[in-house]
Design a protein around this nucleic acid. Sequence first.
DNA 1: ACCTGAACACCGTTCAAGT
DNA 2: ACCTGAACACCGTTCAAGT
Lengths: 204, 204
Amino acid sequence: VTSRAEILSAARRLIARDGADRLTLRRLSTEMGIGTTTLYHHVRGREDLLVLLLDEMLRAAPQPELPPEPRERIVVTTVAIRDALAACPWVAEVLTTDGFLGLLDDESVRMVEVILTAAAEEGCTPEAAVDLFRNLWYFAVGEILIRARSRSTTPEERAQRPGFASRNPDLLPHLAAIGPRWPAIADRDTFESGVRAFVNGMLG
Amino acid sequence: VTSRAEILSAARRLIARDGADRLTLRRLSTEMGIGTTTLYHHVRGREDLLVLLLDEMLRAAPQPELPPEPRERIVVTTVAIRDALAACPWVAEVLTTDGFLGLLDDESVRMVEVILTAAAEEGCTPEAAVDLFRNLWYFAVGEILIRARSRSTTPEERAQRPGFASRNPDLLPHLAAIGPRWPAIADRDTFESGVRAFVNGMLG
DNA sequence: ACCTGAACACCGTTCAAGT
DNA sequence: ACCTGAACACCGTTCAAGT
């Protein structure tokens, strides 16, 4: 008999060995020595499997030490959520699932609670707290997805692309001027200071 | 002889009629009455085709009326970029392509220039201007991708999902309290005020 | 140049049938 | 209950060959 836990751990092994893009239900079942259709008796399908895997990762993610100041607590927690998600190579395949956070376990969404609590301490109404969280969530998801794709591009491929290196300086003066330096500037990790700016902007 | 323009307009027709998820190279070529492999003589592949389509859309997008105040100009332009992208049903398939903006035509990235210009007027260094743009870009991409997926979920499917409606109030008091109202709150479009908050936070 | 069918190397999911 | 092979309904891309 096959268990869900066995499936999840075999999936983790496969991802660790061959990469997330090689995780297919057919390969996974072959690896486990079972029929592909057997998987459907333990997980709803591919997407469900990936969400379950991410849920496990988030539950195991280290909880950051929380500063007493509510704003800084929001910053630290948002960065921790980003870091935990960015560590999952298959994150891009499930992150935009509708109602993604709602699919997670109570344990996995504790960081959401931390942010809502801190927002309330800062005087936010429940609606304002949800809006604050959602804005930070959109920001984190955008950053994660774009960076996830960048990581899978080799430097040679990147050099091939046009980018902003030679844009028409009459039509696009600033872009043409900064163009050659754009990749280096965009490569810096400025997520934390972005979150801090966002939080300060929202809380006034 | 087939031209790239013919391919693009046939692709637009197919998307309008059957939806973006039905746009495959095989279907497109069948629709056009040509061999699938013929497409490869005019576009690099599927991803290239989608980027070319989006490029066309962005070039045709209405340029918003620009307010004199630099900060408000950034807000209006960011919202315009979001609206233009959100109008493309296939946007989710190309938006996270590495160096996506760099693949676009000079005409299509004029809105990037508008934001860089306004940031410079606000006293930003070139680096700070790029950071400001990137933060807004991550925010917009996250919002677009998450909303794009929500749109393809039917209300019945959504009602089925757990969501935050019944969370453990001991572990997650704020989440449990706001849970039932979360979907309604999250459904509101607060993008513009989010952008304004972010811009104010970044520019101090 | 431009076009093509055949082939390669796969997918996720459903279903009726077995034990 | 749990498992299965076969089938369904497809994909994007490459390649050698044609006109």
